[in-house]
Design a protein around this nucleic acid. Sequence first.
DNA 1: ACGTGTCCTG
DNA 2: CAGGACACGT
Length: 674
Amino acid sequence: MNLSLPDQNMHSSNEGCIEDDKSDVMLPCFRRNMYDEPLASYSSGSIISQLLRKTIQSKRALDESHFYLSSSTAADSGQEDQSSVSSKDSTVEAGSPSGHVSMGTSPDGEHPVTDHLQAKRARVENIIRVMAGSPNSKQHGDSERSDTEARDTREAREAYRENKRKQRLPQHQEHSVGGPASRRPGSSNSEKCNAKDEECHKLKEQLHSMQRLLRQLQEKFLQVYNQDDPEHDDRDETEITAEHDSMAESAESRYISTEDDFERKNSRVTAECKDRMKVVDYLVHHRESQNLQEILKQELSRAVNECVDRVFKKVPSAGLDLSPQPCMCSSPEMQMSVGADRKSQQASSTQEQPQSEEAAVKPHSLEYYESSEAQSPQDQTEALSLVVRKPAVTPLSSVTPTVKRPYPVHQTPFQFNYSTPLHDSQILEHLLKYGPHSNFGGLPCMPPSMDRTSPDSVDLPWDTIAMRSKVTSGHLGHHPRPSALGAVAVDNLCLPHVKIECGELQSMAERNPYMSLNIQEGLTPNHLKKAKLMFFYTRYPSSNVLKTFFPDVKFNRCITSQLIKWFSNFREFYYIQMEKFARQAIVDGIREVKDITVSRDSELFRALNMHYNKANDFHVPDRFLEVAEITLHEFYNAISATKDSDPSWKKAIYKVICKLDSDVPEEFKTSSYL
DNA sequence: ACGTGTCCTG
DNA sequence: CAGGACACGT
């Protein structure tokens, strides 16, 4: 009788709410580029960039003061005339710089400088000599001066390698020529007192410059240590860091102290020479570190490339425009040189001038990632600094997919990928420690089932990285989410291949709720959960719809009927609840249908939500509440009209309700949505 | 005959 | 939820 009224209500509200549903359905997580955010979390990037800035500043300061320190700054500026390098001496090894302490002052022995000051100067120059072996000199001096220094080397093949050590010698000698020579005029035409003051002043400034140098050197060392982190265990790292901190601290204190405190400062400087000697020893092993770096780079590159190829071969729907790629092993930079990672990498660039071999690789790597990025090739530096750099703080919990949100959004495997900007850094960290073929069980972000599978299990995280990197690199609007067509295509075409080629992968995906990206032989609990969530939108899905929204399921008669059965069971529960609450309303004496409402606080809703959304991690669309309310009204009216005496009285209600289905959001089409 | 849905049972 | 029985429409 009054069935028509709810019917009209239904229609009007139906039309109005479909759009609401749409907007309600499009949850922010799918739009927000969470992978754009991690930049902020790379605090280390800012640290490095600060260091870089400081280095540039100190370099500028060096240029200003190299009048007094031309010998020691020659390596840094790379501008000094090599004619001043008059060394015919044998190569001075790192461990024996002390034998030349007096050399710097001997040419000036005639001029009226006191022994006291000479001793000071000797100490100062000793320090400078030690500092001449800094990595800084390596950066600028290697390529430019290999010719000049090669003459000292019998074996031309090792000229490059020798450079690092030899630079100490020329600078040492050059210092004795350049520094004191500049002082000579003053000493010849002035009185003792004036000369003394002048000498004092120069020494002061020398010391000042030295302090700057030292700071610069320390920054360089910090960078070097950061690069070589993986090969040192944590203890060493902290030890070194502490050492560096103490050095930096003392340098800072010296820097701000008054310039008159010669004695004290000099003593401190010499005391620190011991510390620096440790660092020099470290530099001896730096060569090996670089070899390791190269190996790591190549290994990383190879692993990532393999996985990228595999993914794009096996999942054509995610293929984008990236065809199977040739060997990219020669460009280790490319693998992680995209998107946010790349930006932070750029910020942490430790090299002012790209080395030649790296520069040769860069354009190559950019080709693969469609230079839609607004970064010039210069912005890309070697992968090492990125790969090795350790994020100081990694707020893992903020992006863990298992985190419950107040109104949790759809959680898909893809979302899992996109919304975990830190995972890759952790993976990299792990990889650098244990190598690319180790398992990831130790990673907190990795599901536990991954650490006991075959070595191929590494592929999935790598796939994750690859996919995310690709998306991040400028295909933001190109989510590899299978469309309706893609779902069918995957179902009909790709699945067999996937199944044959990576059964192992599939079996792992079955075990791993997060990795159900691949095709399932049967329905998993995740599919059930997904179906329940879909019930919030559609109570009577057609088998076609089911096939569309379960693209990762290999459909057959049995599976289809099972899915249909699921929804039948859902309906059964739903209608039972409706009848129950409708009768309860009648018992409670509710007279008007309008007095029956269904809100999120309603007990009816809680019962339904408990059944279909037990984890309560899904924001039930408002439309479902309306449909529930309409259904309740139908039952109420039917029961009130004693229609329940008819054995098939519910069928009329079913007929009404089946028209209230709304479209399931596109997000559910992602393979194994959850 | 087949697909689909409901009802009942465990 | 699954299984089975049953009804209904094509």
